[in-house]
Amino acid sequence: MKLVILSTFISFIIIFIIGPYFIPFLQRLKFGQSIREEGPQSHMVKSGTPTMGGLMILFAIILTSLLFITNRTELFVALIATIGFGIIGFIDDFIKIILKRNLGLKAYQKLLLQFAIAIFIAVYAANHQNIGTVLAVPFTNMLLDMNFLYIPFTIIFIVGFVNAVNLTDGLDGLASGASFFSAVFFVIASLYNGYYELALFAGSLVGACLGFLRYNIYPAKVFMGDTGSLALGGALISLAVLTRMELFFFIVGGLFLVEAASVIIQVSYFKISKGKRIFRMTPIHHHYELKGWHEKKVVRVFWLIAFLLAIIGYIALIINI
Rank of each mutant, 00 (worst) to 15 (best):
L171C: 05
I217N: 06
I278F: 14
L239K: 07
I237L: 04
G177T: 12
S273L: 04
M281C: 14
F256M: 11
A199V: 12
Y192P: 00
V206P: 00
F185E: 09
F181H: 06
G253L: 07
V165G: 04
I237P: 01
G275V: 13
A235Y: 03
Y195I: 05
A208M: 13
G253Y: 04
Y269I: 10
Y215I: 01
V241Q: 12
K276C: 05
D226C: 13
V252R: 04
D226S: 14
L255Q: 06
F223R: 02
F180G: 03
T282C: 12
K276I: 05
S238Q: 08
F270D: 11
S229I: 10
S179V: 10
L239Y: 08
F256T: 06
G177E: 02
L247C: 11
L236P: 06
K221P: 01
F212T: 00
I264N: 04
G225N: 11
G253D: 10
L191S: 03
S229N: 13
T282Y: 05
L213P: 00
L210V: 07
R280I: 07
G233R: 01
L167M: 15
L174P: 03
V165M: 12
G233W: 01
G254D: 13
C209S: 15
L205G: 03
L247K: 07
A183E: 09
A240M: 07
C209G: 09
F279A: 10
M224Q: 02
V263F: 00
L205A: 15
F212W: 06
M245S: 11
D172A: 06
A202S: 15
F181P: 06
G211E: 08
L255P: 03
L205Q: 05
L171N: 02
F212L: 05
L242N: 05
S238D: 08
E246N: 03
Y215F: 15
S179F: 05
N193P: 01
R277F: 11
S268V: 14
I265F: 10
V165D: 01
F180K: 05
M281F: 14
R244L: 09
L200K: 03
F256S: 12
S273I: 03
F248N: 09
G253R: 07
S268E: 11
L236Y: 02
M245C: 07
S190W: 07
A202D: 02
V187A: 10
S190C: 14
Y269V: 08
V187C: 14
V267C: 06
V184W: 08
A240H: 00
L205F: 15
